[in-house]
Design a protein around this nucleic acid. Structure first.
Lengths: 128, 128
DNA sequence: TGACATCCAATGCACGTGCATGTAAGTTTC
DNA sequence: GAAACTTACATGCACGTGCATTGGATGTCA
């Protein structure tokens, strides 16, 4: 019977919804209050911090876009906010001048490392 | 070691994020394109349709608010949209004239029933 | 080389959301 | 019964998002 599947699927969905909402709300609030960072801003710093270790301090916009659940335009503005806050620098790529490299500034690295414990604590509280 | 827990928790979170985003985006698009309904609008109709069966066609705003992940103001505006579309009616309560009852109109019931298969199909595709 | 398609990022715009506040109705305290 | 408090809902406002478009750079093909 399909009805059984539907019920099961609905339960799974409402559970996902609950976890997502509780967690992301608290992440948003904690990061904002404690570190003046939005969740998607933190997420950019996180990815950037990872790939900066690997690629010598650079990451392309397109790479970021592929790794997070954000439209191209939203990402562009998120980066603009981070740049205004001095946490990130934009740099044009010499080989393809359409593309942009992103660099984590020392302030950005510092802010990310300060925020990471908060982030992990919230995740642990909700998902452990 | 805490690092192990953190990694596990991060994986769980990114999985939740993935499922939530894919599912809710497709729900939003399918419901909008096929039935001219936003996801939170559909959710209101869904709850209303359930409790209308039980309570003789009525549900209070506060009840809705408790059952969905939406702020009081957002819910108020969602109901306004539904009312403008003729899918729902607001009615003041005689016993507590601060409170509002919501009624599903025949058009609302019809729209909900038309949209439900779409909704379930998306959930099944992503969560089955 | 010139014309055309494709790609990357930024921006105008509309929209839904949350927070803070306003307004009106009910409740409590004296 | 008047004043202070609480509750229910609506609204002003700021903000982040997605879609569509633009502007500039690159690639392709004749």
């Amino acid at each position: 019977m399909e009805a059984v599947v539907d019920e099961d699927v609905c339960t799974k969905w409402s559970e996902t919804l609950r976890v997502y909402h509780n967690t992301s709300c608290e992440l948003e609030n904690s990061l904002q209050d404690g570190h003046d960072l939005g969740l998607s801003e933190f997420e950019v710093l996180k990815i950037l911090s990872r790939s900066c270790g690997k690629h010598g301090g650079k990451a392309k916009m397109k790479e970021l876009e592929a790794e997070m659940y954000l439209s191209q335009s939203a990402l562009s503005r998120t980066v603009t906010r981070l740049e205004k806050a001095g946490l990130v620098t934009r740099a044009t790529c010499d080989f393809d001048r359409r593309a942009m490299f992103l660099l984590l500034t020392p302030a950005g690295q510092e802010r990310y490392e300060a925020a990471q414990p908060t982030y992990r604590a919230v995740l642990r509280r909700h998902l452990a």
